[in-house]
Structures are given as structure tokens and as C-alpha cells.
């Protein structure tokens, strides 16, 4: 599904990702943990193709294609989704309108028909209900005035409607109360199947009790410093990242 080789990414002329390798197979869920500022969000942005995140070396293959060749919106249409650590407020743009426009733009890029608007509304309503979100949020401007937790849940609504092949969740669990965390995890678990992959960036092992990862990686100073199974997350929870220094020393 995703194959990253020796990836180097510079932001503002400074190298942040310094030779990263990562392979995520179809249906797999990988967790990425790591200290603040280690480059987790930078990796997400670089994969999504954001301007200013310059790939200076390496390759990324996504679903058989060269991901780095594609524009941001082409990556989305190809099936890549990034749930942002800080979802953006878009004043004046209706949430439901935006979501439908996004879905239709992706479908058009893939040569598919526009979505039927009744069917679309039905899907969105179901997702809102599953995430215990007020339907009124559909009529509001995208994320504007949403609480922190509502913004995060709105990302999951988008994820569920857009049905990507690979979803990168950047700290979607941060700022959620315990019940909301469970709802979000359930939302993600409903979407898991043998073809859809996830990269879940998180600081907390708690999320990984609900979303059982196939692999856990520790990102440190722009590289994968350690990989393991879910027990690695438990170890990090107990010991913190101190062992990284001793490992490198």
C-alpha cells in the first residue's frame, strides 16, 4: 500500500525528516509515536503534498504509484487522507457543502459519477449519529467555532465519507474526552478492512488499546528509531523516550 524509502524532507531549508523508511501493507494499522518536534506531523504533511514540505531525497510508492509526482488533490483522489492535528476553520463555507464538493471532486478525478445528494446526506447523518455529533454542525461553517473535540470528530466524519485507501491520523485522539476517544476509535475500527490501511500518530498508548496496531514505530529526530509490536507502546508508556538516547549513544 505504502512504501517509503530513505525519505528526506526539509521545511524552510531545514531538514526535518532525515532518511525514513516505512512500509505499510494493505489492511495494516501502524502507530507512530515519538517526542514533540520529532517530525511526525511533518511526515504527514509531506505525504499529503503540502507546499513548503520539500522532499529532498527518497521515494514514496502508494498503491502502485509514485506519490511524490502527484498534486495534493490528486493524492486525495488516489485515496490518501490526512486527518490534521489542528483541523482548519473555514469561515463562510458550509460543512455539508464542502464535504459533498470534496467527495464529488474526488469521484470526478477518478472518472466516477457524482454522488446522489439524498444518499450523500443519509451517509453523513449516519456518521454524525455514530460519532454523537449534533446534526446542526452540518449547517455550520467548516470547523468554525467547533470545540476541539468536535473538530477532531469532524475529521473522522470526513474520513468515513471519503473512504480513502490510506488514512493518516495525526493526533486525532488529543483533546478528546474518554467517551469521544472511544467513539472515534470505534469509527476507525468500522472502517478497517483488508484493503484499507492506517497510520495513527499518537502520544498515548490508550488509543492503541482500542485500535490494535500491527506495528508501532518510534520517530526520533526525523528517523524511525525503533519498531516493534504493540508491546513497544506499552514500554514507552512506562519508560518514556529516555531509552532512545541510550540506544543511540
Amino acid at each position: 500500500m505504502l512504501n517509503i524509502k530513505n525519505l528526506h524532507v526539509a521545511v524552510g531549508g531545514e531538514e526535518i525528516i532525515k532518511g525514513l523508511d516505512l512500509e505499510v501493507g494493505p489492511g495494516e494499522l501502524h502507530a507512530i509515536m515519538g517526542p514533540n518536534g520529532s517530525g511526525k506531523s511533518t511526515l504527514g504533511y509531506a505525504l499529503a503534498g503540502r507546499d513548503g514540505y520539500e522532499v529532498t531525497d527518497g521515494s514514496v510508492e502508494f498503491d502502485g504509484r509514485d506519490l511524490l509526482e502527484l498534486e495534493v488533490e490528486q493524492r486525495a483522489a488516489a485515496g490518501l487522507f490526512l486527518a490534521l492535528q489542528y483541523p482548519v476553520e473555514i469561515p463562510g463555507v458550509n460543512n455539508a457543502y464542502f464535504l459533498r464538493a470534496a467527495l464529488n471532486a474526488q469521484r470526478k478525478a477518478r472518472g466516477e459519477e457524482e454522488v446522489d445528494s439524498m444518499a450523500f446526506l443519509k451517509t453523513v447523518r449516519e456518521q454524525l449519529k455514530a460519532l454523537k455529533m449534533d446534526e446542526a454542525l452540518l449547517k455550520r461553517a467548516v470547523n468554525e467555532g467547533f470545540s476541539g473535540g468536535e473538530k477532531k470528530r469532524n475529521e473522522i466524519v470526513q474520513l468515513a465519507v471519503l473512504q480513502p485507501k490510506l488514512a493518516i491520523l495525526d493526533e486525532t485522539d488529543s483533546g478528546l474526552d474518554i467517551d469521544a476517544l472511544k467513539l472515534v476509535a470505534e469509527g476507525v475500527n468500522r472502517l478497517r478492512d483488508e484493503n484499507r490501511s492506517f497510520i495513527v500518530i499518537t502520544h498515548y498508548q490508550r488509543l492503541l488499546e482500542y485500535l490494535v496496531p500491527d506495528r508501532v514505530h518510534v520517530l526520533s529526530d526525523g528517523r524511525i528509531a525503533e519498531s516493534g509490536d504493540r508491546s513497544l507502546a506499552q514500554r514507552l508508556e512506562r519508560e518514556g523516550y529516555a531509552f532512545l538516547d541510550t540506544a543511540e549513544a
Partner: peptide, 11 residues
């Protein structure tokens, strides 16, 4: 905002 919208598929 521009990145956010494009990342969801809008040109």
C-alpha cells in the same frame, strides 16, 4: 485553509 481543502480533493 487552501491546503486543507485540497487535501480533501478540491482542485
Amino acid at each position: 485553509a487552501r491546503f486543507y481543502l485540497r487535501s480533501r480533493g478540491l482542485s
